[in-house]
Design a protein around this nucleic acid. Sequence first.
DNA 1: GCCAACGTTGGC
DNA 2: GCCAACGTTGGC
Length: 154
Amino acid sequence: MNYWLMKTEPDTFSIDDLKNAPLKTSSWEGVRNYQARNFMRDQMKKGDLVLFYHSSCKDVGVAGIAEVVKESHPDLSALDTKSPYYDPKATIAEPRWYMIAVKWKQSFKQVVSLHAIKENPKLKEMLITKKGNRLSITPVLKNDFLEIQKMSTN
DNA sequence: GCCAACGTTGGC
DNA sequence: GCCAACGTTGGC
């Protein structure tokens, strides 16, 4: 089993939106970056756990935990001309973009802030703490995942 | 296949 | 809203 961090802007899709979704489940549409796509297409498996990260907002940090419940399938929003995620180069035969689906597991009482993560020497290696890291999906070490979970209960 | 120009991300 | 850092595009 693997661990991941997935970024989302809560104004667009927050952990509450996931919690309130049917079956508390949603596909992760709209990723238009090859590296992040490849993680979803090739590596993210059912049962993997996800740190649900809120970016570009007042309370930046990890807001909760989700679980991968459906593996790679085509992101058809790329075919929808009305979608903000429309990509003219995607076709049915060659969908180009893929996504996974996640299910809500837990909302932290308090967001584990990016600031707190940066302050924690145990989490020095986390990619989210590195300057200029814009990748919206990143692998996370098990120990780092557990440490964040621990911080959420303090 | 290089690389300048451009658009986007995301913390602050 | 600013702007550094980054990924992508497209002319050559």
